[in-house]
Amino acid sequence: MNTVMNTQTAMRPCTRVYLLLVVLTLVTFAVGHFDLLSGSRALVLSLLVLGFALIKGQLIGDFFMGLKGLRGPWRFVILLWLLIPGTLITIAFTLAG
């Protein structure tokens, strides 16, 4: 019984993260599917969608890969990786207009 309770307690944050990942994915799809990325708001919404992807990546790193709570440089390895392509993509899309 205790074992079951421990597993459930430990899984709770990961289950919440999973549901958040699903919601952010559905929002990303809706932005593309309903053709919201046209006209003057295309760049802003594209970068918003990219922002969602970076948040999702950090959640995967922290909660699924187990980096949350680490001490030292490994704590930030996924964040660093996300920021490098994230920044370059932002620059390229902004310059392209």
Binding site: T28, S46, V49, L50, L54, I60, L82, P85
Partner: peptide, 11 residues
Amino acid sequence: LILFPLVYVMR
């Protein structure tokens, strides 16, 4: 998670 918005959605 990065590939999906970049290739399929962002424009």
